[in-house]
């Protein structure tokens, strides 16, 4: 019995090396790009996506905190007893 521990992609298994060759040949045929060009394009996607995300998420977090502070302030004003003299 032969075992074939090299595996391809489901969840987190390793891709079959033969299939990688087949896919690469197919992409070469379809795209006809230099290896360096493909690496730069995909590399830019891999770098820019998380950087943009971090910036946007931090901005959103600030907005959320600000909105919560305003909401808290509004609630405390609304709950104040109207018979109390204003400062």
């Amino acid at each position: 019995m032969r075992l074939h521990p090299e595996t391809l992609g489901h969840h987190a298994e390793a891709t079959d090396p033969t299939l990688v060759e087949w896919i690469k040949d197919r992409l070469d045929h379809l795209l006809g790009l230099e290896a360096t060009t493909v690496v730069i394009v995909l590399g830019l996607v891999l770098v820019l996506f998380p950087l943009t995300l971090i910036v946007l998420a931090r901005r959103q977090r600030r907005r959320t905190e600000q909105a919560m502070a305003e909401s808290e302030l509004r609630r405390s004003v609304e709950s104040r007893d109207p018979s109390e003299p204003a400062d």
Binding site: E6, T7, E13, T18, L19, R26
Partner: peptide
């Protein structure tokens, strides 16, 4: 399927190009 895909495709006479696509 992940492990045996390539061997099955080869056994069925499917071209590498078709299998990759």
């Amino acid at each position: 399927i992940s492990v045996h895909y390539v061997r099955w495709a080869t056994d069925e006479g499917i071209t590498a190009q078709t299998a990759a696509t």
